[in-house]
């Protein structure tokens, strides 16, 4: 029996991809940084009060094969509705309930006419900081890349 999603399928794959992108960005954001960028929460009704739980993380055998259970991670989820009727969902890593509420509010607002303003003030800075953080790690890794020189092979003698 298929379970039907509660929300009507998002009209096109482009907007779905956009929503997935901001939900992921919000989930990965540092709770404190998100609070700095988006300090004031608008009025909202909680549909699912923020709840701390565990998600079983799965890997694949050999990286490509059958799934197996690797271990759990802490996740906090929340669902809420704004006065305008927009519904926001969040599943965020860690145990910060404020993070989950804030991410759900941003998810809801991003579906309203405030999306562009919010993108500029919240999502763009978060994205830029994440890219910078990743680039920094990648640059340090690149500096440890080895160039091997073959000195002599056994069969050369």
């Amino acid at each position: 029996m298929m379970q039907t999603p509660l929300e009507a399928a998002t009209p096109n794959s482009e907007s779905l991809a956009a929503r997935k992108a901001w939900m992921g960005l919000l989930a990965r954001a540092k709770p404190g940084r998100l609070a700095d960028l988006f300090p004031e929460l608008p009025a909202h009704d909680l549909l699912r009060a923020p709840e701390i739980g565990a998600v079983m993380v799965r890997g694949r055998i050999g990286g490509t094969g059958q799934p197996f259970n690797l271990g759990e991670m802490t996740v906090t989820r929340c669902a809420l509705r704004l006065g305008s009727g927009a519904v926001g969902h969040a599943h965020v890593q860690g145990r910060d309930k404020g993070h989950a509420v804030r991410a759900a509010v941003v998810d809801a607002l991003m579906q309203t006419n405030q999306a562009e303003a919010l993108r500029a003030t919240v999502l763009v800075p978060l994205q830029a900081e994440e890219v910078a953080r990743r680039a920094n790690r990648a640059a340090k890794a690149a500096a440890t890349k080895v160039e091997f020189f073959t000195l002599v092979r056994g069969e050369d003698q």
Partner: peptide, 17 residues
């Protein structure tokens, strides 16, 4: 780390490990 969210009907990134 991505998870299917049943009520949404699609998978969302929930974090990074």
């Amino acid at each position: 780390v991505e998870m299917e969210i049943p009520e949404l009907g699609f998978a969302v990134e929930i974090g990074e490990i």
